[in-house]
Design a protein around this nucleic acid. Structure first.
Lengths: 255, 255
DNA sequence: TTAGTTATTTTTGAGATGAATATAAGTCAA
DNA sequence: TTGACTTATATTCATCTCAAAAATAACTAA
């Protein structure tokens, strides 16, 4: 091939080396809050392998489909198209992670607001529900230790997850915790209008630890992300709190 | 299939659905320091597509090869087996990112100590060298803005990178910056024994900003990661600094 | 009107950080 | 040998952040 050959000519006879290829999939950690606890949406497998265990919703990536599009499609297919914040987590590629064949899976974290989470559970009756048991954020584990996460069924038994999905869920929790304080992920779990107490509840649920109230509100307000609406919550006994709205400041990148 | 069928029997006749699959590759950001600046090792492409541009070293993932193993293999093949810290960055899967065929690539960050970096450049004569021009860490860009990174040749011209590799390099820099202060990546760019001034130089090079010396040394020493050796640097004019060694405390996870 | 509960603000103190200064330890040149 | 010079290291002080506590405000229910 001469270097002056045109790019078009080169492409025309390009022969894609055909070695055996791993399959490429996406798996989604559909996370929301339920009764103040971090919760997941799972599918119970009724087939080999790992029949009877619970798995993350996922699907293969189409040959003409971008990774993000595949993740969005799986979200639509499995959770009925509820709105969610999607973010790539990590890619898992151990050789034996699926006994059927070699599958490389790109894990995504999908954050659903509480209403969307409940709606997904209604719309898709095959989805089941698990809460994440936090290993109690000890004092000295700031350095995101490899926290072994346990997923509990609504009745409180520990669920066995299929494949390496427990590892994926653990990573999702770790990522969420790590980003919570300096990114906007916390707001993705809330409705559009929310009180500072609700925001604090979300943070406490994810961190698994109580937070100082005045310090938390000052920090959040100083961030410049909160827009007071002048409206107040209703239906409460006692003094109603002001409702805020999330106002993203900069273009803000996902990681 | 009856649910009581044995798993082995099921696997025996499992027919892996054969849709067209994307190819899976790994690309490595080989990063080190050269003369106090962040630097990269690149390969100049002599073929279509993007002939003449510079690309990250990479390779396809074997059907029986874990992702990390593929990354380690590429490191061996392209950089002559120098030691490096390897860490998965992100997976890029846009449909048209390579005009030849659909390739999903898992990007890895490889950190080479200064000696290893120089050694790789010697051993692999096809590798070329670029420094990363930092867009000067402005005051208010703490929220990892999408910093457009420029890679410069040794003579100072801007290099054009192939494919989406500029994006990958930008992400690598962002990740490095983000983790620098609370993880051990800074030490991966240093030899086993180093002075506090060298450590500070590494941080300043990556952040692109000067740091307060006493505050920096206090912070680092308080981390508990530094083990004084009682030995001192030699060959310097003026007072020699003490040599320290990195001592990882906890098992410490990668991201 | 008063007790009870939660929202919000203010105050206080501890700890981390940045800047400046002081001291120590080496080389080099006279 | 001495002193100038340079850098490492230690100390001091002011500032800032943030947690904890206390005080105040706003509402409901009795």
């Amino acid at each position: 091939m001469s270097p002056s050959e045109s790019e078009a000519a080169f492409l025309a006879r390009y022969d894609p080396a055909d070695y055996a290829r791993p399959a490429v999939a996406v798996d989604l950690v559909l996370m929301g809050l339920s009764a103040g606890r971090p919760a997941l949406l799972l599918l119970r497998r009724d087939r080999h392998p790992h029949a009877g265990r619970h798995a993350l919703p996922g699907g293969f990536v189409g040959i003409d489909e971008a990774l993000e599009d595949a993740a969005a499609r799986v979200l639509r297919e499995k959770a009925g198209g509820v709105p969610a914040h999607l973010e790539q987590l990590y890619t898992f590629g151990a050789v034996e992670r699926d006994p059927r064949m070699r599958i490389v899976t790109v894990a995504y974290l999908a954050l659903l607001a509480e209403a969307a989470f409940a709606e997904a559970l209604e719309r898709a009756p095959t989805l089941s529900f698990g809460t994440v048991a936090l290993p109690r954020r000890g004092v000295a584990d700031e350095a995101e230790a490899a926290a072994p996460v346990t997923v509990l069924s609504p009745t409180g038994e520990a669920l066995r997850l299929a494949f390496d999905h427990a590892e994926i869920v653990a990573l999702a929790m770790r990522r969420l915790r790590g980003k919570l304080d300096y990114s906007e992920v916390g707001f993705r779990l809330l409705p559009e209008l929310f009180t500072l107490r609700q925001l604090q509840d979300v943070h406490e649920a994810i961190l698994g630890t109580p937070l100082n109230k005045p310090a938390f509100r000052r920090r959040m307000l100083d961030r410049g992300w909160l827009e007071p609406t002048g409206r107040f919550e209703t239906g409460t006994s006692y003094r109603p709190a002001e409702l805020y709205r999330f106002r993203p400041t900069s273009p803000s990148q996902g990681d």
